[in-house]
């Protein structure tokens, strides 16, 4: 935990994008982000209507997509220029991701889902006790650890997804519309727990949503239309 914080404090800029261009396959549309920086520990609310490149941006940040040109650097290290295998490893160790839904492998138990994340990140720490602590912090009964992920409610699954995404204490957490399947009460509880956990781990959070009412939980807010432009090539 200490070394984690030291590392984070020595890296003030968690995310840096420079002249990033991405062309959508089978179309002439290009997404371009001239310049974007996120400080370590920031909790950025990224909002904008559907179809403005939210998911593409997340894919770029997670390293699933590679930009056509430009440079994405994470934690002051070049990221988008890494070979696929190294990007996969970097993602496993330094980036946590929570989707809208289907975050978990349904046929595995909750604990095994969490162990899987630790396995791919070569995280040899005592995963089980940490998972139990996180499940407790997320106000889930400890029995869920041994239930299959597919048998949980959507709200429970989303909370397990946070635990899974944070088990390796990643420096960056990417979250994509995680509350769209939740009702208002569950949504509030979810947001509080998410931000509290990020706070304790000093995690840089990128939170993507079209729901402006969630803005209040996060420290800063960026509109996608201000950040990037979509243009049709001639």
């Amino acid at each position: 935990m200490n070394s984690q914080q030291n590392r984070n404090s020595s890296v003030p800029v968690a995310i840096r994008l420079k002249d990033v261009q991405h062309r959508y396959p089978k179309s002439q549309v290009t997404l371009s982000i001239p310049n974007w920086e996120v400080q370590t520990g920031d909790k950025v609310f990224l909002h904008g209507p559907s179809g403005t490149g939210k998911t593409t941006l997340l894919n770029l940040l997670a390293g699933v997509l590679q930009p056509e040109s430009g440079e994405i650097a994470l934690l002051d290290q070049p990221f988008s220029s890494l070979p696929t295998r190294k990007r996969d490893k970097f993602r496993a160790k330094h980036i946590g991701v929570v989707f809208q839904q289907f975050n978990l492998v349904p046929h595995l138990s909750v604990l095994k889902n969490i162990r899987l994340a630790a396995y791919f990140a070569d995280n040899k720490a005592s995963v089980d006790s940490k998972a139990a602590a996180m499940i407790d912090a997320l106000r889930l009964p400890s029995e869920v650890l041994h239930q299959s992920a597919g048998s949980l409610s959507v709200g429970q699954q989303q909370r397990v997804a946070i635990a899974r995404a944070l088990i390796n204490e990643p420096e960056i957490l990417l979250v994509d519309e995680p509350t769209s399947a939740l009702d208002t009460d569950a949504r509030d509880a979810f947001m509080n727990m998410l931000t509290a956990l990020c706070e304790t781990q000093n995690t840089t959070l990128i939170f993507v949503s079209h729901d402006k009412s969630l803005e209040k939980y996060l420290s800063s807010s960026v509109s996608l239309s201000a950040l990037c432009t979509l243009k049709e090539a001639e």
Binding site: T84, R85, K89, A92, F99, V105, A117, F120
Partner: peptide, 16 residues
């Protein structure tokens, strides 16, 4: 497909 997407995002490469 979804299961594989989950594995990918956890850092599993194509080889895995």
């Amino acid at each position: 497909e979804k299961e594989i997407a989950v594995l990918r995002i956890l850092g599993a490469g194509g080889g895995t």
